[in-house]
């Protein structure tokens, strides 16, 4: 890549990084406010059953240096977090950050894998119906994808598990931790990735978006010119009609896929962030759910950072806007 191509990217990257930082600050503030407004802050949960009177609690609070006003509480919480101290889980006593990162890796694998499956299904179908219009082949397939997308993803999970384990006997019943030993561990990963990829409402929306973007581009004058002079239509429509929309939809679908991951991880007993969030919500384990929410937000923001970089790399003019 030439230097002149890198400059706009660097420019946009610095701007987007600032925006990302501001947004993550907002994210931390929202998380803090929710926890602050909740009845019984983590500190009094910690003291529950140990100190009986209200005065004694207040005294302890002061003695341990827990600040009183909400903004000083927020600032000290934020400083702690920036130093990598997310607190320890109320349930397991383990430090939250390490646990969330460890589990988060599994969720990232699940998310990226399922995105890949979604695109594998959606891109050909969207391109076909954008170029050829709705016909006898594309309409039933599109309709089928709509139906699959509206299926509750948890039920789809059960169907897939039942079919593969009982009818075909391919995959072991239990997923996750206990699977170790055999060299086919990656096989266990395929089912949830597949279910999250085709279910969860993503496929139909991706198809719809890609189709409308591609048909918009196909109607442009420069495509008509390309077609008239016999140049490759595909080459001229690829960037605007496919590359940019795909990155755009990936970035905007990441939060939905992470949300779907909560359910799919529950169905398949996948040791990821979503299962962790579920467990934390059951136990009212504030530090863990907070860590999950913040890491999830970081992932979403990284996705949209990636999108703006691709956008400018394809279309350098955009950096001057």
């Amino acid at each position: 890549m030439k230097l002149s191509a890198i400059r706009p990217i660097a420019l946009v990257l610095s701007r987007e990084l600032t925006i990302t930082a501001l947004l993550l600050l907002g994210v931390s503030f929202v998380v803090f406010i929710i926890l602050y407004l909740s009845p019984g802050d983590p500190f009094s949960v910690l003291l529950e059953g140990q100190v009986s009177t209200e005065e004694a609690r207040e005294g302890l609070r002061e003695a341990m240096g827990v600040p009183k006003s909400w903004y000083s509480q927020y600032l000290s919480w934020l400083t702690n977090m920036l130093q990598g101290n997310f607190g320890t889980s109320v349930r397991t006593g383990l430090p939250v950050l390490q646990e969330v990162l460890r589990m988060g890796l599994n969720t990232v694998v699940l998310t990226i894998g399922s995105l890949f499956i979604t695109l594998l299904l959606a891109v050909p179908l969207a391109l076909y119906s954008a170029v050829r219009g709705t016909d006898r082949i594309s309409w039933p397939l599109t309709m089928f994808s709509y139906v699959i997308s509206a299926l509750p993803v948890f039920w789809l999970g059960y169907i897939v598990i039942y079919f593969f384990t009982h009818k075909l006997g391919i995959f072991p019943m239990a997923f996750g931790y206990s699977s170790g030993g055999s060299g086919s561990a990656w096989l266990y990963a395929l089912l949830p990735i597949f279910v999250l990829g085709i279910g969860n409402g993503t496929v139909s929306e991706v198809i719809r978006f890609l189709r409308s973007e591609m048909s918009r581009v196909m109607a442009e004058d420069y495509i008509r010119t390309a077609r008239a002079k016999g140049a490759s239509v595909w080459k001229h429509s690829f960037k605007e009609g496919l590359l940019i929309p795909v990155t755009e939809i990936i970035a905007s679908k990441i939060p939905f896929i992470l949300g779907g991951a909560v359910i799919v991880e529950q169905v398949f007993n996948w040791p990821g962030m979503g299962k962790m969030a579920w467990q934390a919500a059951q136990d009212r384990d504030y530090p863990v759910i907070m860590g999950v929410a913040i890491l999830a937000a970081v992932l979403v923001r990284l996705g949209s950072l990636f999108q703006s970089v691709v956008y400018v790399a394809v279309n350098p003019r955009a950096s001057k806007e």
Partner: peptide, 10 residues
């Protein structure tokens, strides 16, 4: 920025 389900669990 928040996956909705995670925000709801929070």
């Amino acid at each position: 920025s928040f996956p909705r389900l995670v925000l709801i669990l929070l």
